[in-house]
Amino acid sequence: MMWKEKYKIGVELIDRQHEELFRRVSDFIGTVRSEVPWEEKLSKIKETLEFMKDYVITHFRDEEEYQAKINYPGLEKHKQIHDDFKAEVAEFVQLFEETGFDEDLVQRFSGKLLAWLINHVAGIDQKIGEFAKKQEVPHHES
């Protein structure tokens, strides 16, 4: 999973967090997909999931605060997308716990996470940057 410069929206804090998210998710998927026996890599998977859960919440909050600051008209819709994603992740986490981190379930979660994050950052979040540019908002103040 490759971070690309074109994913930058021109807001320093958000871009830094996106890049970090890509790095973490990429590491996570690398671990999930590695040939190492499932039991051996499970502790790393759990640790990365715990980190991502907190990081995603922080990132979503910062991104929503920035959108509010620039009066982004898509804020409510964007917040709904974040909330839906958080709910889906919470559902998966509950299932992980109920099934003892079933490998197939974690594989499915990883595939969804991969596609969701690319679309969110490369597609949906770009509109925030485009709006900010039109408003001539000073990007580096966030």
Binding site: D104, R108, F109, S110, G111, K112, L114, A115, N119
Partner: peptide, 12 residues
Amino acid sequence: LDSFIISALSEV
């Protein structure tokens, strides 16, 4: 084509 791939495609 395993569950990781199918899940990624389903999200697409």
